[in-house]
């Protein structure tokens, strides 16, 4: 077997992802359609005549069967037409395109902080018993208990109000600066690409606190998971065998124990990342972060169907996409998964 996943493995996983996507989108579409609320009434307003409402329903396709509606929606979705907000009349795709990069940048940075932090803490905590392990254990327990938005408020209080080292809840950039020209949509990356050091450091400063607040929960979760896996893997017989070759304790810990212990963690990390993207609504509110959270909350409150539908569908794409990536990564790091139906010999 080669050292990389086989084409068959990849195709198999891709097909699985596609099927899941179709099912998830159909299900979410169906659920949103049976939720009470009448989009036509919403658009036309409370004073519209029944005739006008009927005409509008017809125009919106609401009188077609749910299957037909789904097909036409998906067709539009694939061609970039995600409908328009019933409440504001704005194009859903442009609203999301404008807001998504902010959410993604925040989620990505929080994710990197969480994963790197978890790997470092779990490795050190399991390598030497002592104060560090105890500290990491207690902190991660606390981290699981803190609501992220509350942690965000505390961080703001300490670093912005008291110490004054961090900007307040003012979005992604101080108001006196202009946003860098959009390339990736990430201010940190775009400002660097534009050579604008001032904007870069300001963007980083704005990102730091919300990212930390958002990272706390996944860091705590991953640290506990990885620490437990590392401790269990460290007792495997092959660890004794590796040591008996003369390989040092730290090398063994990193090269063999971490590699094996990371396997079950990778899948969880993918899910953690997905929840970061879709679950940062409250943190965005606390830091006045111009992400998708705000429009989503508004959309739900106003029963603004198109926004919610597009967001749910996007979330499904993100979850399934990340799962697909996780499968591929797993295929790279775990040789046993590469062959479909591979069976360990007795």
């Amino acid at each position: 077997m080669s050292a990389v996943p086989t084409l068959r493995y990849l195709l198999g996983r891709a097909f699985g992802a596609l099927v899941t996507l179709v099912l998830a989108s159909a299900l979410s579409f169906a659920i949103l359609r049976v939720v009470p609320g009448d989009p036509a009434r919403l658009i036309a307003g409370p004073l519209a005549t029944p005739e006008a409402l009927a005409a509008l329903r017809d125009e919106l396709g609401l009188n077609d069967g749910i299957a037909a509606q789904y097909v036409s929606y998906i067709g539009g979705f694939l061609s970039g037409d995600w409908g328009y907000s019933f409440a504001s009349g704005a194009d859903v795709s442009s609203v999301l395109a404008q807001r998504l990069p902010a959410t993604l940048e925040l989620a990505l940075v929080a994710f990197v902080i969480a994963v790197v932090g978890a790997v470092v803490c779990a490795l050190l905590a399991t390598y030497r018993r002592g104060w560090f392990g105890t500290a990491s254990k207690s902190l991660s327990l606390l981290g699981l208990g803190f609501p992220p938005f509350w942690l965000g408020l505390v961080l703001l209080l300490v670093f912005s109000s008291w110490l004054g080292v961090s900007p307040g809840p003012s979005g992604r950039l101080s108001s006196y600066l202009t946003a860098p020209p959009q390339i990736t949509g990430f201010y940190t990356v775009d400002s660097l690409l534009a050579g604008d050091v001032v904007a870069f450091s300001d963007a980083v400063a704005h990102l730091a606190l919300p990212a930390l607040a958002l990272a706390m929960l996944p860091w705590a979760f991953l640290t506990r998971l990885l620490t437990a896996n590392l401790a269990e893997t460290a007792t495997s017989p092959y660890v004794v065998v590796v040591r008996s070759k003369g390989v040092g304790r730290w090398s063994t810990h990193v090269r063999h124990v971490l590699h094996n212990a990371a396997l079950p963690t990778i899948t969880s990390s993918g899910l953690v990342f997905a929840t970061l993207i879709t679950g940062s609504v409250l943190i965005e509110q606390v830091f006045d972060w111009p992400g998708v959270g705000e429009v989503l909350v508004g959309g739900i409150q106003r029963q603004d169907f198109a926004i919610v539908q597009a967001f749910v569908l996007l979330s499904a794409v993100v979850f399934i996409g990340i799962n697909f990536v996780v499968d591929i990564v797993n295929g790279f790091v775990d040789p046993r998964l590469r062959v479909v139906g591979a069976r360990s010999q007795p």
Partner: peptide, 22 residues
């Protein structure tokens, strides 16, 4: 570490769990 595997080495009991699976 300089003695293990060079002067003194080990064949461990259970072959199924004594090799790193990855």
């Amino acid at each position: 570490d300089r003695v293990r595997g060079r002067d003194l080495s080990l064949v461990f009991q259970d072959p199924l769990t004594s090799l790193d699976p990855v």
